[in-house]
């Protein structure tokens, strides 16, 4: 049974007994609570159900059963209201090749009904921060993978979502760009946003996440801060990679 944080209002995300099956079960009675204002890393091996879970929260996949609440809003009953609070950034950037960055950000801000003047200021600020200002009037078709990824992130942030969900946000970024993105995410969390990210780069989760959840076969098998996860094992100084591999191996043996 999940509990909400009484001091900070409703949690950013609550999943109760969430289920989704395709040819085989992808999400199998998942229970998860992400507190408002934290950076939560959702880890798991390929096919564990991470992306399926986040796509259900974003309204891109219907759940078979279970409950999804975003800041107390029942996302299955009131999807439009829930979507207003969320931004979704998949690993493949959602862009239009024939638009330039400013036109793209204007379009996304319009979709979410962001206040135009504020959105414009924020768009300029994001383009500056992410090193895209000089390219603001070039069409996206000529952009590198990293530039596209950064612009898609700017699109996810331009309407100031309260819950930002990122699927492998650092894929395809060079070291400098990855650093820019990580700094931006940390600053957003400091400003009060909630971030859930999936990543295979465990060092990112280790350094950035307030809490970490490990998912396997559509179920949450471990959760806590890095210290709590270490404490649950035998080695207090173990790296997240060692903890993660041990948890997955344990899950495989139990299955």
């Amino acid at each position: 049974m999940v509990e909400s944080d009484a001091n900070a209002g409703p949690p950013a995300l609550v999943l109760r007994d969430l289920r989704k099956a395709f040819a085989k079960t992808a999400v199998d009675g998942l229970n998860l609570v992400v507190r408002a204002g934290e950076l939560y890393a959702l880890l798991g091996p390929n096919g564990a159900g991470k992306t399926t879970t986040l796509r259900m929260v974003a309204g891109l996949l219907p759940a078979d059963s279970g409950a999804i609440e975003v800041f107390g809003v029942d996302a299955r009953r009131r999807p439009i209201e829930a979507k207003r609070l969320i931004a979704w950034l998949p690993d493949e950037p959602l862009l239009y090749d024939k638009l330039d960055p400013l036109e793209y950000l204007e379009f996304v801000a319009g979709l979410w009904g962001a206040e135009p003047r504020r959105a414009r200021e924020l768009a300029d600020e994001l383009l500056e921060t992410l090193g895209l200002w000089e390219h603001r009037r070039e069409r996206c078709e000529g952009f590198s993978r990293g530039m596209k990824q950064k612009l898609a992130l700017a699109g996810a942030l331009v309407h100031e979502p309260r819950l930002l969900m990122l699927d492998e946000p650092l894929t395809g970024l060079d070291a400098a760009a990855a650093r820019q993105v990580k700094d931006l995410l940390v600053s957003r969390v400091r400003q009060g946003a909630t971030i859930i990210l999936t990543t295979h780069i465990l060092e990112v989760a280790e350094r950035l996440a307030d809490r970490i959840g490990v998912i396997q076969r559509g179920r949450l098998i471990a959760e806590g801060t890095l210290g709590e996860l270490r404490g649950a094992g035998s080695d207090e100084a173990a790296s997240l990679e060692a903890i993660f591999l041990a948890l997955i191996a344990q899950g495989e043996r139990a299955a």
Partner: peptide, 19 residues
């Protein structure tokens, strides 16, 4: 790729239909 003309900075449109 052809770059769009540099135009004067303008505000974003507030209407979803126009966008």
């Amino acid at each position: 790729s052809p770059s769009a003309r540099m135009r004067k900075t303008r505000a974003f449109s507030g209407s979803l239909g126009a966008t």
